[in-house]
Design a protein around this nucleic acid. Structure first.
Lengths: 297, 297
DNA sequence: TACATCCATATGAAAAAAGTATGAAAGACA
DNA sequence: TGTCTTTCATACTTTTTTCATATGGATGTA
């Protein structure tokens, strides 16, 4: 019993007549009679009652008709679902973000949602090492990280660059100013939005070294919102990407532009170089890193 | 896309390998590869990812796998349901009963249920004319009526015969006796469990005429339990089939055997002579009129 | 590097499905 | 009642689909 036969039977049931059903199916009548008989033989059950010229469903036939409708509908829906999944307009998109990039994600997903409303998401947050593991294990398909990263065997597409800003507690003397030189940042207690070994930490440290100063790091905190809270509480100052300031700003902290340095932060979308990327992931990359064009697999 | 291909895909998905899937399906590997490719072409979607020797499902493939499991299971269940319906162990059995036979039905259905637990019922109650209409319109498949009936074009299988009894109010003088002659029944106010034109009414009337007496009919009531209530209330006496007495007896009425007459009541199962009888209906007939054997269509 | 394993392609054989021709039975209508 | 039409079933042929065998390329392994 296959789908084709179910469709045949639906036509027969609805037309109430083999000849008409054959016409509707655009086929000759004899093969349809044959198929009907074959179905009855296979099931060992009479599906129709031959009353002279007319034909009428038996109870078993009526049961089969209902079920056949169900099944063919379900199959159709299944196929469109598969097609949509293949086309990337339906399915699961699993994304990993580093702590410093996490704040961007909600807006990105909201935007993506408007174009692809059927997509569902898995969002993971973790440090570079975890992201790398997750990419490897396919827990996530793409990751959004801060550059520089240390992920091996990955395609990296940088998003726009942005400067670092220094955030300080609202009441502190520094909050009178609107900018500060990078080398002067070293004079103030500093929270690093990262930990040793990670890209940002190393990059900032290197920059201070280049300027011949040594920062007064009193805290390392790889969670951006916690970092901001610490600053708001007056614990210290912190260097964070400008956009992170935009999303976390409040009346308890003040922001200073940092001058006299070229270090900047740049987020990037990365994914495993030798892996199949789902259409959904490609769409995501296209939307947020459109200049590069979407990779072709 | 047909069921066969879904089964193929299930095997491929579960084995994770075309060769192994082919072995499990007891077929050669090349045609399976072909079918897989054909499915991908039809859907316009990659279902598996060829990673060197290995094969892995894409998201679309995983979606198809889940749906394929659903659909094949549903098909299997549908087919067994159709078979069972055809075999008469599942489905709808619609039965009509006359008022005088209704009291038997619950026990009959209870009994039938024990053999065919998947059968569901539609039970209708009405007079001969209604039953005839319902048989004609296929509202009901079989009817249980009192003989004689006036149903045209029907097969009739009588159930066992049973005598009429006279029921009288518990306190009445008649309740001292245990039997009464038919001709003496005419001396007492009588409720006929039927109305003119119906079989039972005519049969009883004819019998009184034959005996040269005229019954004192003060009420006609084609509802047996209402008839019994009327007697219990002391309105009159009533002639009813013995089994009706058995099911309705209570302390307010007394029962007398009727002698000096050969009239008896007999229920019968009837059905449309030229109609297809469902297996379920045949089973029902076999169970309650086994002597005749089941008719063959 | 040789070997085994797995998938893909090509080609021919077998099976299944569809088409054509035709007959029998049932309803319609003069 | 007897044609005439309609409808389903059967016999036979053609076409399509599916499967199997042979074989080559790619990948991972001893």
């Amino acid at each position: 019993m296959d789908i084709r036969q179910l469709r045949y039977f639906i036509a027969i049931a609805e037309e109430g007549q083999i000849t008409a059903a054959a016409k509707r199916l655009q086929m000759a009548q004899p093969p349809l009679s044959q198929q009907l008989k074959q179905m009855e033989d296979e099931l060992g059950v009479a599906l129709v009652e031959r009353i002279g010229k007319r034909i009428e469903l038996t109870e078993a036939g009526a049961t089969l008709y209902k079920q056949a409708l169900n099944i063919t509908h379900q199959l159709e829906e299944a196929l469109t679902e598969v097609k949509e999944t293949g086309d990337g307009i339906r399915g699961m998109l699993s994304i990993g973000v580093s702590a410093l990039s996490a704040y961007r994600l909600p807006e990105q997903i909201r935007q993506y949602q408007q174009h692809y409303p059927l997509i569902r998401y898995q969002v993971w947050k973790g440090d570079t090492q975890l992201l790398s593991d997750w990419l490897e294990k396919r827990t996530i398909e793409v990751a959004i990280v801060r550059l520089p990263h240390s992920l091996g065997n990955c395609v990296t597409i940088p998003l726009e660059e942005e400067p670092f800003v220094l955030i300080v507690p609202a009441g502190s003397p520094l909050s009178m100013n609107n900018e500060i030189a990078m080398r002067d940042v070293a004079q103030h207690p500093l929270i690093m939005p990262s930990t040793p070994g990670l890209g940002i930490y190393e990059m900032l440290t290197k920059e201070f070294t280049r300027l011949g100063v040594s920062p007064h790091v009193i805290c390392e905190c790889p969670d951006i919102s916690l970092t901001v809270s610490l600053v708001a509480a007056g614990v210290a100052t912190a260097l964070i990407p400008h956009s992170a300031w935009e999303t976390h700003k409040n009346e308890n902290i003040h922001c200073l532009m940092v001058t006299g340095t070229s270090v900047s932060s740049s987020a990037a979308i990365v994914w495993h170089a030798e892996r199949h990327l789902s259409k959904a992931a490609r769409h995501f990359i296209e939307m947020f890193a459109p200049k590069t064009g979407a990779p072709d697999s």
